[in-house]
Write a protein that binds this DNA or RNA. Structure first.
Lengths: 209, 209
DNA sequence: ACCTGAACACCGTTCAAGT
DNA sequence: ACCTGAACACCGTTCAAGT
């Protein structure tokens, strides 16, 4: 046993460690060799879990970041793949928690959680701009938003357009915040959240009247 | 004269060529060496115009993409720097064209132009997520949006919050569109524009009631 | 099945040198 | 002032080999 073979390598461990490096040194600071070092493994071992290399790892990170289970801090299970995942008890708990609220509170609760998740992994935000992996989480989000908007009285094209407006607003609101957060005139997080909710309420109001 | 020295190198030529490469091969396909080849120059010549290297070039690209003059297809002058640029006649013409419209049409005209610009350079969209260069164009946008919202009756915190909601919505709406455009369920551009305007109208309505 | 280690082509950047 | 060309450290990825 001359090697530092760590035997515990998995897709999720790799993704989590990659996100750790991204958080610390930025997306440009993530290299396969550095990732291997952090995992106490030769860089080439990563290719056994992501045969298509760094691009596939990026896709997996994008899927991971946009998967709801992550935000709950309950990400010890399997990591999300490009393929769909079977539902987990945890995710169902999350949605039941919210199931009996009025439509606008359901959307607001989802939006706040999504925003938190994106902010937590803000270093990976630029990965999301060109990747929309098919995940179960994405389908659930679509269903949640469309059902809520229908409950609010929307129908026809307005449902899918309203849903995209909300998805776009959340993505862009976080993007705008992250974009400006290294500037001297950047608002504190409390004010950033207040602005997010202000715009969200306005959008919801405008969509449903 | 043994070299391929092209003598016409400038910051703007470099930026434009870089955006061309990004459009063709993606952000990851842009390397200093490839950029040098496209400019018919040794890669190291670029460092004379961007002494701090690729990161500085990325910042300049981000500034360029978010500068209004570009969208008019009138970008033959000097490129935007990280520092402010003096106003140009072209930009003034643009704003006068719009100056006498009602506030909501001013915002909508700006938003459509901004969206077009971001879509034109969508390959560089992820560069914007972590860069907010101080440009004259940004100050003008801020002024335009805030003045329009005040004219609509907003005051106090609502002005800056409404302004950020609009900036976030535009960025995110384009981001959401680009994100999904390689998927089979992606809407055509006409529908994408319709969705953008639908959400924008809703947001404007909600902000001002 | 899972990981190593050498190898290859490519990359960003520095620096001394050329004009 | 502006560009070249060699050099260096680092990178992604392939592949044969080890266990």
């Amino acid at each position: 046993m001359v090697s530092r073979n760590n035997a515990g390598l998995s897709r999720e461990r790799i993704i989590v460690e990659a996100l750790h490096i991204i958080a610390g040194r930025g997306l440009g600071g993530l290299s396969m060799r550095r990732l291997g070092d952090a995992l106490e493994v030769e860089a080439m071992a990563i290719y056994h879990h992501f045969p298509k290399g760094k691009e596939q790892l990026f896709n997996a990170i994008a899927a991971y970041v946009t998967t709801a289970r992550v935000v709950s801090g309950l990400a010890e299970g399997e990591g999300p793949e490009e393929e769909e995942l079977p539902a987990t008890g945890i995710e169902q708990e999350d949605s039941e928690q919210v199931e009996n609220l009025p439509w606008d509170q359901r959307i607001t609760a989802w939006a706040e959680a999504y925003r938190t998740r994106l902010l937590t992994y803000s270093g990976a935000l630029s990965l999301l701009m060109h990747r929309a992996p098919h995940t179960l989480a994405e389908k659930r989000t679509t269903a949640l938003l469309e059902a809520a908007l229908e409950e609010a009285g929307l129908s026809g094209d307005a449902v899918v357009r309203g849903r995209d407006a909300l998805l776009g607003y959340c993505l862009g609101s976080v993007g705008h915040q992250v974009r400006y957060e290294d500037r001297e005139d950047a608002p504190a997080e409390a004010e950033a959240l207040a602005r997010f909710l202000f715009g969200l309420r306005a959008l919801l109001h405008g969509l449903t009247r």
